[in-house]
Nucleic acid binder design. Structure first.
Lengths: 242, 242
DNA sequence: CGAACACTTGAACCTAATCAATGAGTGTGG
DNA sequence: CCACACTCATTGATTAGGTTCAAGTGTTCG
């Protein structure tokens, strides 16, 4: 039973959940390991979308940049999640860059190879499709948030997601947290606001005891308070100049 | 050769492109026809996601509503496109409502049935996956636009998409125009702005000769001008009070 | 120690949301 | 046909929320 070569994360990963050990082994052997040091780029926006990945360890940040230089972060990838999804579909080039936030390991498959795997293992195709569905829904929710919620609410949403380490799944669930390492700039890019707004907002929350902040660090202290802000209670000591 | 029962649109639809006639026939027979008069709702946000659809004729508007009443329109569906995609993935309930803008016809499959069809016809699964990928990419682009583009630019984008009848595909391609029937309110919901802003902007463009407007009508006259606005030339006679 | 980086904070500015009032087209029934 | 109500749209005035500029503080690193 212990003769399999694939790592445990793969077996519980988004695309591979519920597959048989020999299927997992075949999938594992078809892929190639890819390692990246902190800050290293796994692929860049605009490059031909050659490979599809599942993250095994570490943390990867997806970054999307416009001509005029502003950036958005459509997602953070945790171990077990897939990324570069477009390579599993027809897209020609990567629409985002992927940057390792910590030293990371991923398995990658070429599109052709992954497609033939999906043909062979329908469950793999199904899982992949379901993950796509969740992400699509998620992205549309974000669009809605961008037009209906204030920047304060969106920042609260980002902090809660960071604290729970879930960007993908609905996951209201418990499992609290630990100070998160993230720059103000990144929070801004995740929430669709500016650096200054984030700084002010966090400062104000810090004074109100909702969070604790530091250099590249945010710790959520009162998740319920943030949730309340997210849901629209503007009452929380949020006014501009504190 | 003419003994097949399925309609031509199905054969060229997003999920069924490139399938064999007998596959198409089997898929067709597994589905159920659904008709809706103008303004009628095919399904409502929050209902259990029972069926997955392909639109055969007419036009369907997807609407997403928040607790506080504001609405967004994540997509307009043209014949041949799929909708209620989530029913092909694991989602429990519809995240949007679907409303027929004209008298419309759609084929629907229950999730279980569509999944078994995808198992039988891998090409069907592949097409569906690819459509998901395109939509995901599209949704993320929109998120980016919401945080980087002005409302004017987003409205221009919406008008161009409407005039080209393409919300899904990258489609920069030609095929111009015709007056589009759409309320200001709907343009607002598609562009993530407010009714008043849309009205003012269209009025200003109308004076500048870029569009012609009427009750529930917008005709794009100068697509290149709009494209220029979309790309950031704020020069175009856009200042507030005209 | 000096330079680069990450963050904070005040002040000015401006976009777009909102409120309020009016006007124009559509449809219905007397 | 005209009066009525209704929906959809325009426009002015006001204002709040957030971006941006500019200057300054504190930290980390070579």
């Amino acid at each position: 039973m212990s003769c399999w070569g694939y790592p445990a994360v793969l077996a519980e990963s988004q695309p591979c959940a519920g597959l048989e050990p020999n299927a997992l082994e075949a999938i594992w052997r078809a892929g190639e390991i890819r390692e990246a040091g902190q800050g290293e780029r796994l692929f860049a926006q605009g490059e031909p979308a050659a490979r599809f990945y599942v993250l095994l360890s570490g943390s990867v940040k997806l970054v999307q940049i416009t001509k005029d230089g502003s950036e958005a972060i459509p997602g953070l990838i945790a171990p077990g999640e897939m990324f570069a999804c477009v390579a599993a579909t027809g897209a020609a080039t990567y629409p985002t860059s992927a940057i390792a936030e910590e030293p990371s390991t991923a398995v990658g498959w070429t599109r052709a190879r992954f497609e033939s795997l999906m043909l062979r293992y329908p469950r793999l195709a199904e899982n992949t499709r379901n993950a796509f569905g969740r992400r699509l829904q998620n992205a549309r929710e974000r669009v809605l948030e961008m037009s209906t919620k204030t920047s304060e609410q969106r920042i609260a949403a980002v902090l809660l997601r960071l604290a729970r380490r879930r960007f993908d799944r609905p996951a209201e669930g418990a499992e609290l947290r630990a100070p998160v390492t993230v720059s103000r700039q990144d929070v801004a890019a995740m929430s669709g606001t500016g650096l200054y707004t984030v700084s002010r907002t966090l400062q104000s929350w810090s004074r109100a005891g909702l969070v604790e902040v530091g250099r590249r660090q945010v710790a959520v202290i009162d998740p319920d308070g943030l949730t309340r802000i997210y849901q629209g209670d503007t009452c929380a000591a949020a006014s501009r100049s504190g």
